[in-house]
Write a protein that binds this DNA or RNA. Structure first.
Lengths: 246, 246
DNA sequence: CGACGTGTTGAAGGAGCTCAATCTAAGTGG
DNA sequence: CCACTTAGATTGAGCTCCTTCAACACGTCG
């Protein structure tokens, strides 16, 4: 992140990766009223069932969304990093249907719902960009359904690592070769629908096969092609760039 | 479905369940240019990788979206019935990131992408409604991740049955007690991340416990509360009604 | 130091898978 | 109307991937 950037620049950059905005659109996004708050790791930004009247956008750190089953187990449904808007849905829904929690300490911009709704009315291109953003979200959700539904544990884990690597690199937070993985094995388990114990074994399997190297929370991908192959990963579902929408 | 309805009425009804439209919005939706086509069961409406320049909306019958893994297994990521727009995402993405296939024979309205894009520009309320529709889609995807990731086979199956029952009833296609289930056990397996054999056993388990009764492809839910309990089901994620968005 | 969160390891059990056979219902053609 | 085919449902048996439980290791932080 360049210093001197406007506070909301990461959000703008994220939107501009998938959408085209003009100068007026850009200015009105950067000028959104907001309150920047630092949250500690593990803080709840939104709880399932909350009435929400502001929108959270991640300026730094990592967060995730999750749901609890009635039996008490937890499923992480998405991971988020800098630039991600965490709850556009809450903008239009009244009540949160899932929780959002920080993974690391995070800087979060809290934007009043009304200001965003006004922006959407005034700036169709921004509305369009936000919509596209939720569509990309949807695409990632679909891939996650496939991942937990139809891939075995090792493949699932490799897939998740690949996704994180690509997204981190896209956002300029490390190379696809080497990045910080701020998830505990328990959290990795909740993201992959496994148990922490099995995550541990699967990580060992990937490590022993030389696909990755781990030191604490840092992951090195030794051979991208091999890991992508092991994870049945192809990045199209991330819709990383603007596509031709004639 | 009332006879004499405009052809696109089911789509309008669906949108109006989650959003508020005025008379002009309504008219412009109903006046969308389109071609109505009948597809046989099992027809591909969209294939992963296709360039798409029209949008499919279901007027009758059942369809589903799915992705294939590199290992050849299939995961159904969502079910669709009358009134559902099957590929809004393709409206904004250039290339389909998953396939859409009919389950039964279907009447499908094919709407040119350009017409829809123009509608979105001209009618902010319609754009808003379509966006909300994709947000509801997203919410359902999240619940499916939870279902496949964290619930055991029996619970998963019961959950899917509950979802279908609620959605069918909402759309006026049968009561929540009794409805047609047009999925083979193989397709149910692909929707739940199980195998057809195990789906069979789980259905037997639900039947033997008296929760449901099956005859061919028709399902009767004997005790809604019990099935919902067995399926860890609560319908909030379907966002069935307009919520207060002040 | 002790407590706690996280990672690691082992052993045992089970939920769900695989494979393969059988059954049923609904065509389809003669 | 019957022989034949075929898609789907059902059943059994064996196996395996992943879970569960429980112990221990390690680092950090009060």
């Amino acid at each position: 992140m360049q210093t001197g950037d406007p506070v909301l620049a990461p959000i703008l950059r994220k939107l501009e990766r998938v959408s085209t905005l003009d100068e007026g659109d850009r200015q009105s996004i950067l000028a959104l009223p907001h309150r920047t708050t630092r949250f500690e790791a593990g803080a709840h930004l939104v709880r399932e069932g909350d009435r929400v009247d502001q929108c959270c956008a991640l300026l730094s750190g990592f967060a995730y969304r999750h749901k609890l089953t009635g039996r008490g187990s937890r499923q992480i449904v998405s991971m988020h990093l800098r630039g991600d808007i965490l709850d556009v849905h809450n903008l239009l829904f009244g009540v949160a249907d899932h929780s959002v929690q920080t993974l690391t300490s995070c800087d979060v911009a809290l934007i009043p719902k009304k200001a965003l709704l006004r922006l959407i009315e005034d700036r169709p291109a921004v509305a369009h960009a936000l919509w596209l953003d939720t569509l990309v979200d949807g695409s990632v959700f679909r891939e996650w359904i496939v991942n937990v539904g139809r891939r075995d544990a090792r493949t699932r884990m490799a897939h998740l690592l690949c996704e994180l690597a690509v997204r981190l690199e896209t956002e300029g937070l490390g190379s696809a070769q080497q990045f910080e993985l701020p998830l505990t094995q328990e959290q990795l388990a909740d993201a992959t629908g496994l148990t922490a114990v099995h995550v541990n074994r699967v990580l060992q399997s990937l490590t022993n096969d030389g696909l990755i190297t781990r030191t604490k929370r840092s992951v090195t991908i030794n051979d991208w092609d091999l890991l992508a192959e092991a994870g049945d990963f192809s990045p199209a579902y991330l819709h990383p760039v603007v596509q031709n929408v004639d």
